[in-house]
């Protein structure tokens, strides 16, 4: 019945972890509707994403339907509903970046990682997404890798970035097959 979002089964021990993160967030923020976004952000920071169980627990604490929490989590760009890769690659699609090759950089990552934007490599090493302007337009095209801003990202630089994370660079066709090889 689902479309788009694929919810992975929880790992062993993850349920406990989720419960702890939610409790922690609810200790820091009063359980009111106004604090819903800060609570979700904090839980996501701890877990890397928003598992369904966490959304249900938060909804129960705030005495609101879980579907409304789900609505919020799917509305805002910041929230992710699936576990991210170990390294998160975000390609800026601001005007300045787009004009000087942001799309080209994105396509290079897609080719090298063998995934499309919004996806995570099967080995969970890398996830790739596009972001709206990160405000470093003079360095365009810009890519943010794990909070680190990389400027002037040409296709050659894409390879450089991936190599620095120990990603073996193969030609496009092979990349998908060699996933995870030599990953740090």
């Amino acid at each position: 019945m689902r479309k788009g979002v694929v919810f992975l089964p929880l790992l062993q021990g993850e349920e406990e972890l989720i419960r702890k993160s939610v409790d922690k967030a609810l200790r820091k923020h009063e359980a009111t509707r106004e604090n819903l976004i800060p609570i979700l952000l904090q839980v996501q920071e701890a877990l890397g994403y928003l598992p369904g169980l966490a959304m249900e627990q938060i909804a129960a604490a705030l005495k609101m339907p879980a579907v409304e929490v789900y609505g919020l989590a799917t509305f805002y760009n910041q929230f992710r509903l699936h576990p991210p890769g170990k390294h998160q690659v975000k390609v800026c699609m601001g005007t300045a970046c787009y004009m000087v090759g942001g799309r080209i950089a994105l396509e290079c990552f897609e080719r090298r990682l063998g995934i499309k934007e919004g996806e995570t490599t099967p080995d969970r090493e890398f996830s790739l997404e596009r972001v709206a302007c990160v405000g470093c337009c003079t360095m365009a095209p810009v890519v943010v890798v794990d909070e680190h801003v990389e400027g002037k990202v040409t296709p050659t630089r894409v390879d450089g970035i991936l190599l620095s994370f120990g990603k073996a660079i193969a030609s496009g066709a092979e990349a998908a097959g060699k996933k995870g090889e030599g990953a740090s």
């Binding site: 019945m1 689902r2 979002v5 609101m64 339907p65 579907v67 409304e68 789900y70 609505g71 509305f75």
Partner: peptide, 27 residues
């Protein structure tokens, strides 16, 4: 009841259930 809600945005905005489960699985 609170079974239905809006989710997503833009052209993908849709009326749905929690985690898009079927009506039968929802509350």
């Amino acid at each position: 009841v609170g079974a239905l809600g809006f989710s997503r945005r833009g052209i993908r905005r849709v009326v749905t259930t929690f985690q898009d489960v079927s009506m039968a699985q929802s509350r």
